[in-house]
Amino acid sequence: MTAETLLKVEGVETFYGNIRALAGVDVEVKKGEIVSLIGANGAGKSTLMMTICGSPQARVGTVTFDGQDITRMPTHEIARLRIAQSPEGRRIFPRMTVYENLQMGASLDNQKFFNEDVEKMFALFPRLKERQFQRGGTLSGGEQQMLAIARALMARPKLLMLDEPSLGLAPLVSKQIFAAIKLLNETQGLTVFLVEQNAFAALKLSHRAYVLVNGSITMSGSGAELLANPEVRAAYLEGGAH
């Protein structure tokens, strides 16, 4: 299977002031893949995610999406290329209702497909339909995560980027979230780039994965390969990860 490359990160270095958070990272995501990025706290996972979205911008290296160089683009223009991001900490709009949150997600097409898509989201996450008049801030953590993903999907993305979707969720709820991601990938061919601390769940779900340590990629391979790799097991699966 030689699918087309959708996202390509080449030699990216990102700095916070003088501190180098990413030290030359290469990552590739092909169309229709679920790719995950695992690593310990402070490895630079979220930084890589945010660098792809242009905030902060990479000082060295390039980020290419769908054949277009997006390294120096402002965040909102990157989003307009249909890279939907569910940022870390979910960041839903707490005082807006669930329905309004979904509407915000459909801003790119000026609500053209809103009615059609909102039904799809409610079918994917029936909990959101029950809660559509409720304010975002009053939802439980799992429901907020569902809303964050649904809101990102409302933009009809070519690439969905999820930062820690299982953060702070009960195991059962995070299982539901992962099942939904898998379903979207299998039925609609949605490309997903996933940052996750829950390495086991992420590797099981992904076609391919990267391991990030101190700002550099140390390993990569298929999900199954990495799951079987003794180093990965020791560092991230058997009590190594916190």
Binding site: S55, A79, S86, P87, R91, P94, M104, G105, L108, A155
Partner: peptide, 24 residues
Amino acid sequence: LPIGRAWEALREDEIACRSLGINT
């Protein structure tokens, strides 16, 4: 209108706004 909704979204969360393609 979209602009008013964008204002309110901006009040709620600026980073989320940008990630949804809103020019803050």
